[in-house]
Design a protein around this nucleic acid. Structure first.
Lengths: 137, 137
DNA sequence: GGTTTCTTGGGTGTTCCACCTAAAATTCGG
DNA sequence: CCGAATTTTAGGTGGAACACCCAAGAAACC
């Protein structure tokens, strides 16, 4: 049960985007990469998946960059995990063996429980006290 | 966030061992493999790790086989996960980037929460209603 | 038009997962 | 004590996934 680096990176970057939320100047990939020390070549992928999931928006060309699609409080940790890891707790579909069905039922309970918990955290929780303090370009 | 097949298999097999708990005749690998439809070559590894973690005991030679080390109710799902996946929710040790520390703190909370939940399930829960019904050799 | 930025598609090395194989080591029956 | 039954240990393998790199293309602005 390992948390992927991808999700960790995403949380950090979303926190960063939370800080710049509402500004006119959008941070671009290199800014985010530098601020959170995430390899930019990998960050490209992550930002793309976040955009496809509707969590962030982007603008290209000069003055381009990234921004949250919604207010920080309305982006939950559950959203992030499902956007990048494709599900909170996934296991094999088929169910063979005497105790398979019962086993899966229990793990489904655990998954639902975990999902509820993840829904209770938002990007705002990742932002820290200094809501207005930012990484200056 | 994927649950490994290994843990799924382990849950099923432990349920099976729960049913035979207290008997004189111990089930051996092939019995367990057949009852829960787990590839026996892989099951060998799983049983070994469970034994090294102290969750089951084994006897070799004729009349050998496997048995739970404790009463079903005293083997928790948390024990199983830690024995096989090495931790309930593990993430990278290093913490670089502006929001890294805060991110990890939150995920640690989630991990503790999940661990608590896993502690509330035991092998007994995997065994089903017919506690005495068994797989006959 | 040209620069800046995102977008897209591909590629790569390493690690891990699920599984297999074969040779020991141990236990018991005779 | 011999031999059959069983676990134990060690190693090996194919494929997938992870983390990451690279370069050409497409939009936006000056």
């Amino acid at each position: 049960m390992k948390l992927s680096l991808k999700v960790e990176y995403a949380c950090q970057v979303l926190a960063q985007l939370g800080h710049t939320h509402g500004r006119k100047e959008l941070p671009h990939i290199d800014d985010l990469s530098r601020a959170e020390e995430v390899p930019s070549n990998y960050l490209v992928q992550i930002l793309n998946e976040l955009r496809n999931a509707g969590l962030i928006t982007s603008r290209r060309g000069k003055q381009g960059g990234y921004a949250l699609a919604r207010v920080p409080r309305e982006i939950t940790l559950c959203d992030v995990v499902r956007a990048l890891d494709g599900g909170v707790l996934e296991f094999s579909a088929e169910s063979r063996g005497a105790s398979a069905e019962r086993t899966k039922a229990i793990w489904r309970e655990v998954g639902a429980f975990l999902e509820e918990k993840l829904r209770s955290y938002t990007v705002e929780d990742f932002m820290g006290a200094g809501t207005t303090e930012m990484y200056y370009i």
